[in-house]
Amino acid sequence: MNRGRRLGRVGGLVVPAAAAAPFVALWDGMMRSADDPLTVRARLDMAIWMAVFGTPWMVAAWLLWRAWWRRAGAELSVLDGPALLLAAAATTLPADRRDWGAAMTAELARVQDPAARWRFAAGCARAALYPPGGNRAAVAGALTFAALAATGLATDAALPAGRVFALSFVGLVGGLATLAVARSGRSFRSGPWACAWATVLGGLLIVVAWLAEAPRW
C-alpha cells in the first residue's frame, strides 16, 4: 500500500475517533463524579446516550475527512515538509489572496536545495498567515483560543466534570469556524459575519461576567 492510501486509511480512523473523544471523556467524567457508585446498567445506559449523541458527530467528521481527502488530501500526502508547511499556511489565505498561495507554491517547486526550501517555505508561510490587510482566519483562530480560555475557566468554576467535553466541543466548533472563515471570500465585517462575531464576543462577555457569581457545583 502506498503512503497516500495508508495515510488516507489512518485518517479515516483517527478523525472519527477524535470526534468521539469528547463524548468518551464526558462519559468518563460523569462516571467519576457520581456521588454514589453506579450500577453496570446505569453505566451502560449513559454510554448508549453518549453513543446516540456522538455517532452523528463521528459520521459527520468521517464524511468531512473523506470529502477533503478526495479533493486535496491525496495530493498533500506526497508533498515534502516545506511544501506541506506552505500548503497548510496557504489554506488560511482569504479567497481574494488565494492566487498568492498558488504563486508561492509554484516558486517553491523551483527551489531544489532542502535548506533553501525550508527557508523559502517558512517565509512564504509567514506571508500567508499575515498578509497585508490582515488574515480573517488568524482573527478567528485568536477568538477560538479566547473562547477556549473562557470555557476552561467557566467549567473549572461550575462543572469540572464537563471540562474536557466543553473544551473539545468549543475547540472543534472554533476550528471549523476558522476553516470556514478562511475559505470564505466575504469580508468578516459583512452583516452575517458581524452578527457571528458579535454573538461570540457577547457569549465570552457573559461567561466572564457570570464567572464572578458562579456557584461551584
Binding site: R97, E107, R110, V111, F120, G123, A125, P131, P132
Partner: peptide
Amino acid sequence: RYGYDLCQQLGLKAGSVYPILMR
C-alpha cells in the same frame, strides 16, 4: 520577474518580499 529570483537578488526573505509584492 519571479518572486524567488527577487528574494535571491535582494537577499530578502520571502516573508518580507511577498507582502511587499501584495501591497
